[in-house]
Simulated scan of single mutants.
Amino acid sequence: MKEYRTLTADGMAEEEIKKSRFICHLKRVASEEEARDFINAIKKEHYRATHNCSAFILGENMEIKRSSDDGEPSGTAGVPMLTVLENNQLTNVAAVVTRYFGGVKLGAGGLIRAYAGAVAHAVSEIGIVEVKEQQGIAITMNYSQYQEFANWRTTHALEEYDTEFLADIRTMIFTDKKETQDIIDSLTEFYHGKIQVEKADFRIVEIPVH
């Protein structure tokens, strides 16, 4: 699979700009149908709102992009929202910004800043993850060797998973495929070749982007 970036989770954030309420809902989506269902659900929930503008991006290569101004002046809402998603390199994400008009007109520039800002604020609040496929490495060692394992892991910023304490200790780590051999070589050198190390299955991981 190709690596891509998306939201940490679904969520929302709200801002008030010149007495208008701007509520941004963000959702991870896997298809255009799911994105449109989400947009319609927000529209139904906020049917009294002045506008429910939207944008979404789909595909590991960000190949599907759609946006809607929902009655705002052309180009002042949907495209600025989409641009924020693009600038953050996000995909499989849908955004809806609901506006409750507060009586003060913002002008074209003000609307662009408000809608883009609402999405940027929500993305910042929720967070971003990088979705990638990593290679598993299965390690078998004795108990005295395991006492040193945490120090080695800390050096390489790796976590351990599925650890079993039996006659020997069996545990798993995961790393980017291109780094797998270097990690195995490091382990072998650290333990002078006296532990058992073998490649295992791949898995999908989500790594926070700071």
Results as ranks from 00 to 15, higher is better:
V104A: 04
V205C: 08
K132G: 05
D201V: 09
A138T: 08
T155H: 11
R36V: 13
F165H: 11
D176W: 05
I128D: 10
L90Q: 06
I195M: 03
V131Q: 03
I183N: 02
E32I: 07
K19H: 12
F38N: 04
Y47M: 14
I112T: 14
V93S: 00
A77N: 10
E206G: 08
K18S: 07
G78A: 04
L85C: 01
V129I: 07
G127A: 06
F165S: 11
V93Q: 04
A150H: 09
C53V: 08
N87T: 10
T171H: 02
A77R: 08
M172V: 05
G127Q: 04
A167C: 01
T180R: 12
V104W: 02
G11M: 01
E3N: 14
I39T: 10
Y143A: 02
G103F: 05
L158W: 03
L187H: 07
D10G: 08
R28G: 06
I195T: 03
E72G: 00
V131Y: 10
D37A: 15
L90S: 03
G11W: 02
L7D: 06
H121E: 13
G11H: 00
K27E: 09
K105G: 06
N52P: 10
E16K: 14
T163E: 12
A35Y: 11
D69T: 01
Y47E: 13
R5L: 09
Q181M: 10
C24S: 10
E32W: 09
E130R: 14
E198M: 07
E16I: 14
I57H: 07
V129Q: 00
E63S: 07
T50S: 06
E130L: 14
T98A: 10
E179F: 00
E133S: 13
Q89L: 15
G11N: 04
S20Q: 08
F202H: 15
T140C: 06
Q89F: 13
K178V: 12
T76M: 09
G59T: 02
S74V: 06
F22T: 07
F190L: 08
D201K: 12
R66T: 08
Y143I: 02
L158R: 05
K177W: 05
Q145W: 01
A200W: 03
E160R: 13
I42D: 02
L158E: 02
H121P: 04
Q89G: 11
K18Q: 08
M141P: 03
N142A: 04
V104E: 09
Y146Q: 02
I169P: 00
E159C: 12
G127E: 07
E45M: 11
G102L: 08
A41P: 01
T76C: 07
T154H: 12
R203V: 12
F202T: 15
A35F: 10
A114H: 03
M1T: 07
E159H: 15
V129F: 01
T83P: 09
K194A: 13
A77C: 13
I128V: 15
Q135A: 12
A55Y: 06
V205E: 05
N61L: 13
A9D: 06
E206R: 15
I169M: 01
